[in-house]
Write a protein that binds this DNA or RNA. Structure first.
Lengths: 229, 229
DNA sequence: ATTTATATTATTGTCGACAATCTTAAAATT
DNA sequence: AATTTTAAGATTGTCGACAATAATATAAAT
């Protein structure tokens, strides 16, 4: 009966999957320093799993990009320099434009109501002054187009990019005190997503993302989140 | 000193990385049946590594999509139904369009000569009646824009998609006898990539990819590569 | 004969131990 | 004192063994 007493969390059936999720949550909490080394023995002990199990989870997180693996030297929490942020935002822009192209003709009353609901949840989190919840809610809002697209590869790609975004937001939040999304930041996004001009939506995405990047860069100039050694 | 920075991606320093590469090559050879179960003990013995090492490599290949992992049931070689092919091609189109947008202003004499060389290599393989080499050469040709873009995320994404394409081509080749790329298939691609109209290039990409998909679908109707259980 | 139940086998999941490598500290040399 | 060498310790890489689960074969029941 070596079974983990881990309160039967919602996630995967196997210990490796639960470990992956727990480690990811640990990272996205923002308690760890970017670039910090993750000692296998230490983390494994902390999560109460064997190193082999932990390592399989780490391989996956390295593939996502949250961790950086260097052979024989260790696995490190990712860093975020301006170039990284620029790449994340530009890639995200292209990805989300693709998603909207694929989901555009699949929109219906139900899915649009779903979108509205996701935005409401985001607004609630902002009202409740819950920055962490707001981050998650915003991610969930943006997940809408990927899910609706029904495009597996697109959804997977977003699934890998998303944690990196969440990580940045967590860092931002941690360092800046507060800095979640504004209440009205997605008004136009919602409106255009419900409209009938795909081009207008795509153009707005560029603007929306660019604005996010500019906010980010402005923040970076004030206080460095981290820099590579 | 440490040679960790940007070490050539040939064969990793660690056994896990070499195993990953060997297993991938084994898969891309096309000797395995799509959907076939990979018995850990058997493969580990065949590659002369421990199961733990093999499993780490398998996790990575599952993340790429070449393998499909089902908890407690095993890891299976991916399958390719028409929906998969459609997704691969459409995603590839979006990705490569992004790549050309990012690399467009970075083109110069040297990089364009490089592109020309990659195409020459492809033509050589076709002339030499070397289908496997032609597949690799075509992949290498298309990698050009990703590499030139300097966009890490984009390059990574292509790096994950590429093996799936190679896998399909290997299946195609295996089943169809011959079916590599045609000699002149990239003439316009090359010409436009050297030109000064990004829009024309992007439009051609849509056509180029659509044509590839159509060829693929035509082939699928003749003979099923595989179907899900 | 078909179906259900049970036992057996095979395979995956997880672990702890040892080997290879890196890091750090101390010693030796200049 | 600074640099190089060497030794000690810490950390990662790899392995084989055992546990948990699934797949298969056998027996029992209808």
């Amino acid at each position: 009966m070596t079974r983990q007493a881990s309160s039967a969390e919602k996630s995967g059936d196997t210990l490796k999957d639960r470990t992956l999720e727990r480690l990811q949550k640990l990272i996205l909490t923002g308690d760890l320093e970017p670039g910090a080394k993750l000692l296998e023995t230490q983390v494994a002990t902390q999560l109460d799993v064997s190193r082999a199990t932990l390592r399989e989870a780490m391989v996956q997180l390295s593939e996502i990009g949250l961790l950086a693996y260097i052979p024989f030297r260790g696995t490190f929490l990712r860093t975020l320099d301006p170039v990284d942020l620029d790449e994340i935002y530009s890639f995200r822009t292209g990805l989300e434009k693709m998603a909207f192209q694929f989901c555009w003709d699949k929109r219906d009353l139900i899915s649009l109501a779903d979108l509205q609901m996701r935005n409401n949840r985001l607004c609630d989190c902002i009202s409740d002054n819950d920055p962490y919840g707001a981050i998650m809610a915003e991610m969930h809002l943006h997940s809408w187009c990927y899910e609706l697209s029904g495009h597996t590869l697109l959804l997977q790609s977003w699934g890998r990019l998303k944690p990196n975004l969440q990580f940045y937001f967590a860092m931002h939040q941690k360092a800046h005190g507060r800095g979640g999304p504004l209440r009205e930041s997605h008004d136009q996004y919602l409106q255009l997503a419900q409209g009938n001009s795909l081009d207008a939506m795509l153009n707005h995405l560029e603007d929306h993302m660019r604005q996010g990047l500019e906010n980010t860069m402005r923040f970076l100039k004030e206080r460095n989140v981290s820099q590579n050694a």
